[in-house]
Amino acid sequence: MKKNLICIECPKGCALDVDIENCRVVKVTGNQCPKGETYAISEIEDPRRILTATILTKGFPLKLLPVRTDRPIPKARISDAMKAIRKIRAISRVKTGDIIAKDLLGLGANLIATREL
């Protein structure tokens, strides 16, 4: 089977041609750099995204603290992750990059602050 994908790893947005056999990627063409191949394999075999969101703060002039997962999480779990993130509050000072929630939902990614509070 052949599939066409757009690589999302950088703004170039290369059009990838992907050969798939038994749900496994066997060949990728169209990528201008090696990241395109890695992306294609992941996108077909185990699609993941970095999730960005905000959490409410308590006792700070900034109402919301922007956060993200420090690595991509399975696409299929994004809506679960959002539900979990919505329940978290930022109640103490944090620096950019500080961990807000360790191993979110056991997905192997931490939720980190992307701004100082």
């Binding site: 950088c10 703004p11 970095i50 960005t52 969101a53 905000t54 922007p66 993200r68 950019t96 992307t114 701004r115």
Partner: peptide, 17 residues
């Protein structure tokens, strides 16, 4: 707050903040 910043300048994937 989304990612997509710094890929060129810092060679890293960052959010705006």
């Amino acid at each position: 707050i989304h990612t997509g910043f710094g890929i060129d300048y810092f060679k890293e994937v960052l959010t705006g903040p």
